[in-house]
Design a protein around this nucleic acid. Structure first.
Lengths: 214, 214
DNA sequence: GTCTATATCTTGATAGAC
DNA sequence: GTCTATCAAGATATAGAC
């Protein structure tokens, strides 16, 4: 989709620098929205903050996505899709005779890479605790169950294995939400906690640490 | 504290019905705030909604707690205290020679009872994902670590056992946040998921189901 | 497609009576 | 201690120009 070589109608080739295709700008806004929603939650995030982060005007953000709620739902949907895609790829790359524990471990590693995108995971978390909201709650439930089924049916994990996997993931997300990185030097318990969450996944720790400063 | 038999100065005994001691009213507001904050998060909750839920005026809520943020911090502090107290009581009632797994199980049961208070757990969760906020984030980090230390030092669990325990707790909280109760009859995966989170704790399931409707 | 200007509504907080 | 009235700021959304 969107072949860069064939813009639809009004390319206007030689424009200065801030000029970009509408679809790219849309992507830019979505990324900014993911970051801001992740940081402050649905209610805490303002369309103005998102607009500023994306370098566009506030009314444009509202118009492009037909309102703040619709924008959040789109961010949520994309986040869920990215998690699903990441898991599916890990499953596809699984060695043939892998045990359930090995499978869970590999998928967990894939999840670890997602940790570098704080906004994505935290937008998900904010949605997960917003079950009381009619629209957001429904989308969040449906998305969570979709991931559950993926792990059970496509990864071939047992229900207990899936819940164990999800539990670890939720703790990880919570630590990211708390901004509890490695360099919490003011409290040794923090470092110990982070180091024991995913002892085998060193990459995770680096990402967690990075997530606190970035 | 607060002996009901000896009101401080102005008892005004024979008042109609809405009359109550200031301290009780304060407690009432705190409970309402816990519920509303849990439902909509810090930013989503309005002081007006809290006031209405408590049956008092909005300015009174603001004045009584010196602002919305201070009110949330107090709700958060009390929630943390209640979790700590609940854990400590479970630890005190532990049989002498209990294994780490037994200990974790008993403390988990205590946590299960807390699940009946949706507002409490969800106010905590909202705080945990608000690490970016200067005040709330600091309080949330400190509170989370306090619970970590309690489980490690007072319950005698190893760091790995503590993180396993916390992981299960975070998943449980997330399911409560999603309003994913037992009677999610429209999707069999939901029921399966809930039933596998805490297979040994039947009480939890009842509470989870209740949490969806109440 | 994108911006500026602005309407309108919400909300936290203050002032002051009782 | 508690309420009513009210203000000021902030935020979403709309109108319309370019």
């Amino acid at each position: 989709m969107t072949p860069r070589s064939a813009p639809t109608a009004t390319p206007k080739a030689g424009d200065p620098a801030p000029r970009m295709r509408a679809e790219d700008r849309r992507e830019l806004v979505l990324r900014a929205a993911t970051r801001v929603f992740g940081e402050r939650g649905y209610h805490g995030a303002t369309t103005d903050a998102i607009a500023k982060a994306a370098g566009v005007s506030q009314p444009y953000v509202v118009r492009m996505f037909d309102g703040k709620e619709a924008l959040f739902l789109e961010v949520l949907g994309r986040a869920l899709e990215r998690v699903s895609a990441s898991f599916r790829q890990a499953i596809a790359e699984l060695p043939p005779g892998a045990s359930p524990l090995d499978r869970a471990h590999c998928i967990g590693a894939a999840y670890g890479e997602l940790l570098s995108d704080r906004g994505l995971l935290l937008s998900l978390m904010h949605a997960f605790v917003a079950g009381a909201d009619p629209e957001i709650g429904a989308a969040a439930r449906s998305g969570f169950l979709q991931i559950y089924r993926l792990l059970r049916d496509e990864a071939g994990l047992s229900p207990d294995e899936v819940t164990g996997f999800l539990a670890e993931g939720m703790l990880l997300n919570t630590l990211v939400g708390l901004r509890m990185g490695l360099e919490v030097d003011d409290d040794p318990a923090a470092a110990e906690l982070v180091q024991h969450v995913a002892p085998t996944k060193h990459a995770l720790l680096v990402q967690l640490a990075k997530a606190r400063t970035v």
